[in-house]
Design a protein around this nucleic acid. Structure first.
Length: 420
RNA sequence: GGAGAGGUCGCCUAGUCCGGUCUAUGGCGCCGGUUUGCUAAACCGGUUGGGCGCAAGCCCUCGGGGGUUCGAAUCCCCCCCUCUCCGCCA
């Protein structure tokens, strides 16, 4: 949620910021509703004050004065009851309309209205010189027995896979590696609930705009979270943190569920685009003045993990038009896939500034008052896609795959060889 | 799933039966001050959160939402959550 007070004071700043996103519908309606709501609120509050005075006087009045005093107060109460429905309606309409307004892009976000205009900031790591025709992860996975998509489809439908054999060990190793890596950097490990209330989805900005992306359990009115970010942010909802404990850093682990609506035909095989995957996520509640440093810290962790796993990648800064609703800035890392001969998003880091904190009411106290924290999130290890990047980059001519040194303490083996 | 007990401004707690100076009590914690070699103790003051307003001030807030009433922490209804016991279950 944006700051409606700021919007009122400086609507042109919002117009300009949303123009950078390629235009946002409904801004003028929000401005108008906010003004009408404010007017109505002032009127109702004025009458409530009058009524409160009248009502209090009754308690002090003598028996003779009472009937007349009650009659007067009743008249005021009736008037207020006549106005309140209109005020409530305005408040509801305002909130509903404002819920669709996205965060303001940070000044450092590149111009652009579509994903073609995202900016490659850097390329890092060397692509290995392969003197053979590399396989993509689907072929490798089949030879090495890492996963089984056909049987996944039989059981649950397309885009569901069984991880099998060494694939399981690889995933568990990656997860533990990422958790240990983050623990050493002040992130407390947390395994989150995956079924979450509407309020948590709304608070993190996935609703109302992205409803179609998520599974919902109607019977219990719960959503399957698309990322542990939802439960991690919501973990501190309504809380007031102390200034001294910021940044609060947590490393979440959970399965993630995405409907992938509208992606028919893309990445239909393998682990790249599936309805369910496991992910270790970084999440920070930061002081507003430190949140851009915190984003840098989260990004540095992502890059160190990729470097430790010896995966070449490029850094892609999302342009204004390609930001999610809650993001003020978003930076992805894309791993190079020698088999598929393309880049694939493996991590994403976002500073949501106070957008989520306002909806979730997550604040901190400093001497002068209570302020909203900034929230940030960033992938540490999306297990499925990391396996894809790992096997494609560390494959050998004979179809086997080597395990980078950083990971072997967790796998217990240094290579995976094709099944007989 | 069944039965019961609860939810009060950081934490604990009084108030709810019997509606009105509740403008929510007290303790702990925290912040500031006095005293003081330093610290502690003691003492004094402050300390829910949000909204409107230049300000004075006003409005809302006792789990959430409705209702009764001139007036609700207090009475009524619905919902959420926590705890205990039973059942079921990994």
């Amino acid at each position: 949620m944006i700051d409606l007070k700021q919007l009122r004071e400086n609507p042109d700043a919002f117009r300009a910021a949303y123009a950078r996103r390629g235009g946002v519908e409904g801004l003028d309606r929000v401005i108008e509703l906010a003004a009408r709501h404010r007017e109505s609120l002032a009127e109702v509050e004025r009458m409530r004050a009058e009524h409160n005075r009248a009502s209090k006087a009754i308690g002090l009045a003598s028996a003779d004065e009472r009937p007349a005093a009650i009659e007067a107060a009743r008249g005021l109460a009736d008037q207020i009851k006549g106005l309140e429905p209109q005020l409530d309606q305005l408040a509801d309409d305002l909130e509903a309309a404002a819920a669709y307004l996205p965060n303001l892009p940070h000044e450092s976000v590149p111009e652009g209205t579509s994903e073609e205009e995202n900016v490659v900031e850097r390329e890092v790591g060397e692509r290995r010189d392969l003197d053979f025709e590399p396989l993509d992860h689907v072929a490798l996975g089949e030879r090495l027995g890492l996963f089984d998509g056909e049987r996944g489809a039989k059981t649950s439908g397309s885009r569901f896979v069984y991880l099998t054999g060494s694939g399981v060990i690889l995933e568990l190793a990656l997860v533990r590696f990422a958790i240990d890596f983050l623990s050493e950097r002040g992130f407390e490990p947390v395994i989150t609930p995956v079924l979450v209330r509407r309020q948590a989805m709304y608070g993190t900005g996935f609703l109302p705009t992205e409803e179609h992306e998520f599974y919902k359990v109607e019977r219990d009115d719960l959503y399957l979270a698309g990322t542990s970010e939802v439960a991690l942010a919501s973990m501190r909802a309504e809380e007031i943190l102390s200034k001294d404990e910021l940044p609060v850093r947590v490393a979440g682990f959970s399965s993630c569920f995405r409907r992938e609506a509208g992606s028919y035909g893309k990445d239909t095989r393998g682990l790249v685009r599936v309805h369910q995957f496991d992910k270790v996520e970084q999440f920070s509640f930061a002081h507003p003045e430190d949140s851009w440093d915190e984003l840098a810290a989260i990004r540095a962790n992502q890059e160190r993990i990729l470097q430790a796993l010896e995966i070449p990648y490029r850094v892609l800064v999302m342009c204004a038009g390609d930001l999610g609703g809650s993001a003020a800035k978003k930076v992805d890392n894309e791993a190079w896939l020698p088999g598929a001969q393309r880049y694939m998003e493996v991590t994403s880091a976002t500073n949501a500034t106070d957008y989520q904190a306002r909806r979730l009411r997550i604040r901190f106290k400093d001497g002068s008052g209570t302020r909203l924290v900034h929230t940030l999130n960033g992938t540490a290890c999306a297990a499925g896609r990391m396996i894809v990047a790992l096997v494609e980059n560390h494959q050998r001519a004979d179809g086997s795959v080597t395990i980078p040194g950083a990971l072997t303490p967790y796998t217990g083996f240094a290579e995976i060889t094709p099944r007989a």
